Simulated scan of single mutants.
Amino acid sequence: MANTETKTVLVTGAAGFVGTPVVARLLEHGVRVRAVVHRAEAAPGAEAVPADLAQPGSLAGLCRGVDAVVHLASRIGGTEQECRAVNTRGTAALVAEAHRAGVRRFVQLGTAAVYGEGPHRGPAEGGLAEAPGSVTSATRLAGERLVLAAGGTVVRPHLVFGRGDRWVIPSLVSLLARMPHWVDGGRARISMLSVDALAGALAELALSPHKAPGVLHAAHPEPVTARELVCTVTQALGLPQPQGETDVRGALDLLEAGAGPDATLRRRLSLLAVDHWYDSSRLWDVLRSLPGAAFSEAFSPYADWYRAELTV
């Protein structure tokens, strides 16, 4: 990385799942961190600045004296109006504020969900049409396009796991409780990345002397099979493994028989049944940061945290 002694980086979503390790990584490099917080507290050592993306006036002056912006905050779920206020209009206001302040580097955390349901089998950036299937994804995509138009970088992971994860592994465990069978033999391949590897990549993109504008996929180079994912998680957390086989249609029938049609259950099923893996070689080619170990090894340091959280 470049000399970071005099750099100031603004981080939105600084107290969130990804924001917490990003701030920690930046502080380790001696960077001054201006942490934008909404309801939570900033990490010790960071300058906490209260602001609300849904209230553009609260962003005034936020980027003054800043060398780079790492935009991690987003609205997940809620009405279209609520999502648009944060993900689209809030991002537009932040981009404009950064431009006024002369900020040269803008990195946004996006999502591979903008590509829709799949299957997706190893496409590189630009190789897939964007077809968001939810209000959250559609409004986030609109925000991403504003960042890209301004010359920024958008990093799109698929599934991120690790300390602070409230969705990926908890959703998988919840699904396994209702779907105790292997779906299509567990052959689906899935892009995953640890939150710490993602944080390292985002921090380096903010600090590197070399810009990497455009979209970058963020995933471990080796996609995980659904069988490896399930076996790793169940063994680490002491949970029963699936027994027997079914196909996607049979799995949907079983899920809906117990709960009725449910879009959330169908999305969770895609974790096990549908290929969602992406070529992330461009990201790792431009960084010194590494994607870390493969999933079965990378999950181990987080197992105790997940056990405690899932017990609660």
Rank of each mutant, 00 (worst) to 15 (best):
A259I: 00
V286W: 03
H181R: 15
L229W: 02
G292N: 11
S208F: 04
L229Q: 02
H276S: 12
A85D: 08
A24R: 15
T139F: 08
W277L: 07
N87G: 08
E256T: 03
G16I: 12
V33Q: 13
G244L: 02
R288M: 07
L237G: 01
E80T: 06
E5A: 15
H220R: 05
R268W: 05
H120K: 10
A96G: 10
F106P: 12
R178H: 13
G152F: 03
Q55L: 09
L272V: 06
V11L: 12
G122V: 05
L271H: 08
H181G: 02
L193N: 13
V135F: 04
G200A: 14
G102Q: 13
V155R: 03
L27G: 10
S134F: 08
A43G: 01
Y302C: 06
V147L: 10
V36H: 04
L252M: 04
G244H: 01
T246W: 00
V233Y: 02
E245N: 00
G127S: 07
V49P: 04
G78A: 07
S174Q: 14
G214K: 03
D67P: 02
S280L: 03
A42Q: 04
G13W: 11
E82W: 02
V11G: 10
G185Y: 12
A236S: 05
A188Q: 09
S58T: 13
L271R: 01
G238Q: 00
A218C: 02
E97C: 10
P123V: 11
L62P: 06
L146C: 01
P261R: 14
E117F: 10
V248C: 00
H220W: 03
W182P: 14
V215I: 15
P180I: 04
P123Y: 10
P221R: 05
V37Y: 11
L172G: 13
G250N: 02
R34Y: 08
L146H: 01
V23H: 10
G61D: 08
G185I: 13
R227K: 14
V49F: 09
S281C: 07
G122H: 14
T8S: 15
E117C: 04
A138K: 12
P213D: 09
A129R: 13
T91V: 14
V173S: 11
L159V: 02
P180R: 08
S137L: 02
P56H: 07
A35Q: 09
A60Y: 00
H217M: 02
S296H: 13
V168I: 09
A177D: 14
V173F: 09
E125Q: 12
L271F: 13
A273Y: 04
A308R: 15
A138D: 12
W284V: 06
G260Y: 06
G90M: 08
S208K: 04
T232W: 01
A85Q: 06
A263Q: 08
D52Q: 07
T311C: 09
G258V: 01
A46G: 03
C63L: 03
S137C: 11
L283F: 04
R189D: 11
V37M: 12
R89L: 15
V248G: 00
H99S: 14
A138S: 14
A60W: 01
T264C: 00
R32I: 06
R166L: 11
P213M: 10
D279E: 05
L252T: 01
R25E: 15
R268Y: 02
H71D: 07
R166N: 10
A263I: 09
R34Q: 09
L109S: 12
L175T: 06
G260I: 05
D196V: 15
E256F: 10
A15C: 12
A206P: 08
Y115V: 06
I76T: 13
A48Y: 03
